[in-house]
Nucleic acid binder design. Structure first.
Length: 892
DNA sequence: GGACCTTGCAA
DNA sequence: TATTGCAAGGTCC
C-alpha cells in the first residue's frame, strides 16, 4: 500500500465552468482566454492544496461514444459549444503539455469514463484519488479512497464529497447515485428517466426500494398508484437510463500511473504561451512556485571564503586556469559610485571556486584587491553576464577587465537580437527551464526597494552559486553558436570591447547646468499658466488638458468639432488630428502649444532636473547594449538620445548640457549615413554617383523625381524628396508616405514609382532583401549581425508586410549601428593610447560627442573625424560633420 | 501599484 | 498602412 495521491481533472467540465463563470477576457489579438484562465487558476489552486504525486486531465472527444450506440438520442439537442470556448480547447491542451501534465482522451469514451477507470486503477494501487469536476454526475465515483471535488458557483469555491457527505446531502448511499440519476433522467445529456419524476420522488423511491432493478421488481409495493403505473410503463427506459448514467470504470486502456507523474515544465514554451495569452499573474506564480520547489532540492553551493589565506591558495590555481566564471553583486548605484559587494567564481574543474562577501574590514579589502587582480591582470578568460557592470566598478579605481573576456548576455543578444530580455532569469528559463533569482528581482522596486548591502549572506550564496554555475554551463554553447553563426568578428572585435566604452561614458556623464534648468522651469511654468488660462477661456470650461479622454469630450462633444480619427478607447487628439482642426476653432492652436510646452516641461525640465546630480552638476545616463533588434544602443534614466532639436522652443533644452570649465564639446555626426549605406548595398548607379559627387542628396532626389534641374528645386520639393528618402529606408508604402506628407495615396504612389524608376538599383535591392529574408528567415548587416524575421512568413498581410519592411530596413539601420560602434571602439582606444583627457560622453545613433580640454580640441577633432570616416570602406565615402562648442545647443 | 493606452521626443 | 527606441500622464483594475 502507498500513501500516494492521484489528482484527476475533468477537463471539459472544468473549462466549461470557467468559461461561463468569468467575464469574456481576451488577449490583444482578440482571442478569448477566460476558460483557460479560469481552468488554470483552479488547477493551480487544487494542485497546491492536494500536492498530488500523479496528475492527469481527461477530455472528451467529438467522436460518438458507446452511449450513442446504445441510445441514438444520447446528448441529442445539446447546444453546440460556443466558438468563443471552442477556440480555447486546443490552446489549453498545449499549455497542459507545456506544464508537463499528462492528458487523456480516447475515441468512443467520455472523459467521465476515463476518470472512472483511472480512479479504479489508482484505488487498487492504494492511492487516494481526488477528482475535480464542475459536474455532479461524477459523484457516483466517490469511495473511501476517492474524494470528489465539485466546483460550486463561480470558480473559487470547491465542495468536497466523500461517501458520508453524499448520504448527508442526498439521503442515499453513493452506490445508489446512478439509480437516482436513472430515475430522474438528465436533460442536458438527454437521458430520459421517468417523465415527471424529479429529485424528491426519485430519492423517496431509492430510499424505500434501493436500486432501479428492485424498484421494478417490487413495483406493486409502490403506494402512489400513478407512480406505480409510470414505473411499469417506463421500465425498459429506466434500465437504459441507468446504463447511460453509469460511468464506465473498465475502459480498455493500458495505463501506467507512473506516466502521470508531473513532468518538468517546458519553460520557454510556457513563457511564450502565457505571454501570448497575457496571463501575467499566472506566469509569475508558476515561476515563483518552481523556484521555491527547486529551493528545497539539494543544490550545488559555492563555499564562502572569509580569509585572505584561503583566497591566496585558490589564486595560485586561478592564475594557471583557463576559464574563470564569475558574477558579482554591486551596490546598484550610478556608474561613478558603482562598487562590488560580493562575488562568486569558479574554474572549469570547480575545485577552485567560492564566493566572497566584501565587508568593511581590512581583510575584505585585501581579498577584493586580489580578485580585482584576477580580473584585470590574469591571462585567463573571464566569463560573466553583463560585463559592463564589472567594467564599471573597476573603472572607478582606474582599472579595466583584461582580455580575454566573454559576456553571455551579449552573446545571447547577437544570437537572437529580438528577445525582450537578456536578464539571467530569462536566459536560464529559456535555455535550461531553470529558475534563477536575479539581484534586481530581489531588490524589488519603488518604495520597498532594498539595498544589496542588506541581503542575507545565505541569499548571496544561493544567488551567486546558481548564477556562476549557470554561466559555466552555457559558455561553451554560446561560444560555439557565435562561431556557427559567423558572429565572432562582430562579437569579439565590436560588441565586447564596446562594453568598456559604454561603461566609461556612463562614468563620465555629461555636464548639466542646474541654474539654467531653473530659468527654463520658471519660463515654462509661466507660459503654461498663461496658455492654460487661454484654453479654458476659449473652450468655456476647465478640464484636464493632459487627458485625451477629457480633451476629446471638450473638442468633439461640447465644441462639436468633427472627429477626424478614432483610437481604441475614444477620439484621437494627436497632433496630426489637431493640425487639421487648426482653422476650425481658436482653442486648437492653444492646445498644440500646450502640448509642446507641457511635453518639454514634464519630460525634459522636470525629468532631467530630478535626475541631475546636484553636487557634480552632471547627468548620468545608462546605455543599453542588448536592447534593440537592429544593433543600435539605447539610453535611459534619462534617455539622452531624444533631447529636442527640431523646434527652437525644445532646442533650448540643449543649452542645459555644458562642457566642463576649460573643456569643449566636439560633436561629430555622420552625414546621411543610412542613405550612403543604401547606396552601397543597392549598388544603384545614380545614388552612388550622387554621393561620390558630394551633392545634396535630397535636392538631387527632388530633381530626379520631379524631373527638373537641381537649381530649380524648391524647398517644398526638397522636403518631399527627403520624406521619400526616409520612407525608402523604413520600407516604403504609399499609405505611409501619404500620411507623412499629408497627400493622397495616388500622389504618394506616383512619387514612389518615379523614385524607383530613377533609382532602379534601389528597387532591385528592396526585392532582393525581401527574397532573401523569406528564404533564410533572417537578414544580416555588413558585419553579419543577424536578425530573424518570422513575420515574413505570416499569412496575415499586415504582419507579412511588416516582415518585408524589416528585411530591407534592418540591414541599413543595423549596418549604421555596426559602423558607429566600431568607430566608438577605435576612437576610445586612440584617446587612451594617446593619453588624452578627452572622453566620449554620448552617442546618438549617428552622432558622437566628445568632451575635450581646449588644448586637445584640435588633435582630438582630427582623430575623431578620421576614425569615424575610415571605419569601413564602402563604395561611397563616409562623411562626418564636426562642430565644437561650449554647449550642446551651439554644437550644430 | 501595475499594465496598458495615447502621445510625443530623437535618429 | 513607415524603422528603432524611452518616457510622460491618464485610466482602469
Amino acid at each position: 500500500m502507498t500513501n500516494k495521491k492521484m489528482l484527476i481533472i475533468d477537463g471539459n467540465s472544468l473549462v466549461n465552468r470557467a468559461f461561463y463563470a468569468l467575464p469574456p477576457l481576451t488577449n490583444r489579438e482578440g482571442m478569448h482566454t477566460n476558460g483557460i484562465y479560469g481552468f488554470l487558476t483552479m488547477l493551480f489552486k487544487v494542485q497546491e492544496e492536494i500536492m498530488p504525486d500523479y496528475i492527469t486531465v481527461a477530455f472528451d472527444l467529438k467522436a460518438p461514444t458507446f452511449r450513442h450506440k446504445k441510445y441514438t438520442d444520447y446528448k441529442a439537442g445539446r447546444k453546440k459549444m460556443p466558438e468563443e470556448l471552442a477556440e480555447q480547447i486546443e490552446p489549453l491542451k498545449e499549455i497542459l503539455d507545456a506544464l508537463g501534465i499528462y492528458r487523456m482522451e480516447l475515441e468512443g469514451f467520455e472523459a467521465d469514463d476515463l476518470i472512472g477507470t483511472v480512479a479504479k486503477i489508482a484505488e487498487s494501487d492504494g492511492c487516494h484519488t481526488y477528482i475535480v469536476s464542475g459536474d455532479k454526475d461524477v459523484l457516483q465515483l466517490a469511495s473511501d479512497k476517492t474524494t470528489l471535488m465539485i466546483t460550486k458557483k463561480g470558480i473559487s469555491n470547491i465542495e468536497k464529497y466523500d461517501p458520508a457527505r453524499i448520504v448527508e446531502d442526498f439521503e442515499i448511499p453513493v452506490e445508489r447515485m446512478i439509480d437516482l440519476k436513472g430515475l430522474m433522467g438528465d436533460k442536458s445529456d438527454n437521458i430520459p428517466g421517468i417523465p415527471g419524476v424529479g429529485i424528491k420522488t426519485a430519492t423517496k423511491l431509492v430510499k424505500e426500494f434501493g436500486s432501479i432493478e428492485n424498484i421494478i421488481n417490487q413495483q406493486e409495493a409502490i403506494s402512489n398508484k400513478k407512480l406505480q403505473e409510470k414505473v411499469s410503463e417506463y421500465q425498459e427506459q429506466l434500465i437504459l437510463s441507468k446504463k447511460l448514467a453509469t460511468i464506465e470504470t473498465g475502459v480498455p486502456i493500458e495505463l501506467l500511473l507512473e506516466e502521470m507523474t508531473p513532468k518538468s515544465m517546458k519553460h520557454s514554451k510556457l513563457l511564450d504561451l502565457f505571454r501570448q495569452y497575457e496571463f501575467n499573474t499566472l506566469l509569475d506564480k508558476v515561476l515563483t512556485d518552481e523556484r521555491s520547489n527547486s529551493a528545497g532540492k539539494e543544490k550545488e553551493l559555492l563555499s564562502q571564503i572569509t580569509s585572505l589565506e584561503t583566497l591566496e591558495k585558490i589564486s595560485k590555481q586561478v592564475e594557471k586556469g583557463e576559464n574563470l566564471y564569475f558574477y558579482s553583486l554591486s551596490n546598484n548605484e550610478h556608474a561613478p559610485n558603482n562598487e562590488a559587494v560580493a562575488i562568486g567564481f569558479m574554474l572549469d574543474n570547480k575545485e577552485a571556486s567560492g564566493w566572497i562577501h566584501y565587508k568593511d574590514d581590512e581583510e575584505s579589502l585585501e581579498m577584493k584587491r586580489l580578485i580585482e587582480k584576477w580580473l584585470t591582470e590574469f591571462n585567463i578568460t573571464k566569463i560573466t553576464h553583463d560585463l559592463k557592470k564589472e567594467s564599471s566598478y573597476l573603472m572607478n579605481k582606474g582599472k579595466e577587465v583584461s582580455e580575454p573576456y566573454f559576456d553571455i548576455m551579449l552573446a545571447d543578444y547577437l544570437i537572437n537580437p529580438s528577445k525582450s530580455s537578456y536578464q539571467l532569469v530569462d536566459m536560464a528559463a529559456q535555455y535550461e527551464g531553470l529558475e534563477l533569482e536575479e539581484p534586481d528581482e530581489w531588490l524589488g522596486k519603488g518604495k520597498k526597494k532594498k539595498q544589496i548591502q542588506d541581503m542575507e549572506e545565505s541569499k548571496m550564496a544561493e544567488l551567486l552559486s546558481d548564477t556562476v554555475y549557470f554561466i559555466h554551463r552555457c559558455y561553451p554553447t554560446f561560444k560555439e553558436k557565435l562561431k556557427e553563426e559567423k558572429l565572432e568578428e562582430l562579437y569579439y572585435q565590436v560588441e565586447l570591447p564596446l562594453t568598456e566604452v559604454l561603461a566609461s561614458m556612463e562614468k563620465e556623464g555629461i555636464g548639466a547646468d542646474p541654474q539654467y534648468l531653473e530659468i527654463l522651469r520658471d519660463k515654462f511654468d509661466e507660459n503654461i499658466r498663461k496658455n492654460k488660462a487661454s484654453i479654458f477661456e476659449s473652450a468655456g470650461v476647465e478640464f484636464n488638458i493632459n487627458s485625451p479622454k477629457q480633451l476629446g469630450e471638450v473638442l468633439f462633444e461640447k465644441l462639436k468639432l468633427p472627429p477626424i480619427k478614432k483610437t481604441k478607447t475614444g477620439f484621437s487628439t494627436n497632433a496630426e488630428v489637431l493640425e487639421k482642426l487648426k482653422e476650425k476653432h481658436q482653442v486648437i492652436p492653444l492646445i498644440l502649444e500646450y502640448r509642446q510646452l507641457s511635453k518639454i516641461k514634464s519630460t525634459y525640465i522636470d525629468g532631467l532636473g530630478a535626475i541631475l546630480n546636484q553636487e557634480k552638476e552632471r547627468i548620468y545616463s545608462t546605455f543599453h547594449q542588448a536592447t534593440t533588434a537592429t544593433g543600435r544602443i539605447s539610453s535611459s534614466e534619462p534617455n539622452l538620445q531624444n533631447i529636442p532639436v527640431k523646434t527652437e522652443t525644445g532646442r533650448q533644452l540643449r543649452k542645459v548640457f555644458v562642457a566642463r570649465r576649460g573643456y569643449q564639446f566636439i560633436d561629430a555626426d555622420y552625414s546621411q549615413i543610412e542613405l550612403r549605406i543604401m547606396a552601397h548595398l543597392s549598388n544603384d548607379e545614380g545614388m552612388l554617383k550622387a554621393f561620390l559627387e558630394e551633392s545634396d542628396i535630397h535636392t538631387r532626389t527632388a530633381a530626379q523625381i520631379f524631373n527638373t534641374l537641381e537649381e530649380d528645386v524648391t524647398s517644398i520639393m526638397r522636403s518631399k524628396a527627403k520624406a521619400v528618402n526616409f520612407g525608402i529606408i523604413y520600407g516604403i508604402s504609399d499609405y505611409g508616405l501619404a500620411t507623412n506628407l499629408n497627400i493622397t495615396r495616388n500622389e504618394a504612389q506616383s512619387y514612389i514609382q518615379e523614385y524607383f524608376e530613377q533609382y532602379p538599383g534601389v528597387k532591385k535591392y528592396v526585392n532582393e532583401m525581401i527574397q532573401e529574408g523569406a528564404k533564410e528567415g533572417a537578414v544580416r548587416t555588413l558585419m553579419n549581425r543577424i536578425r530573424y524575421i518570422p513575420e515574413i512568413h505570416s499569412k496575415n498581410f499586415n504582419q507579412r508586410s511588416f516582415g518585408e519592411r524589416l528585411a530591407m530596413n534592418t540591414p541599413i539601420q543595423g549596418t549604421a549601428a555596426d559602423i558607429i560602434k566600431i568607430a566608438m571602439v577605435k576612437v576610445y582606444k586612440k584617446l587612451r593610447e594617446g593619453g588624452y583627457k578627452a572622453k566620449i560622453i554620448l552617442q546618438v545613433h549617428d552622432e558622437l560627442i566628445i568632451e575635450a580640454p581646449e588644448e586637445e580640441v584640435e588633435e582630438v577633432s582630427n582623430i575623431l573625424k578620421k576614425e569615424m570616416e575610415n571605419t569601413m570602406t564602402l563604395k561611397v565615402p563616409l562623411k562626418v560633420d564636426l562642430s565644437v562648442a561650449k554647449n550642446w545647443y551651439d554644437a550644430k
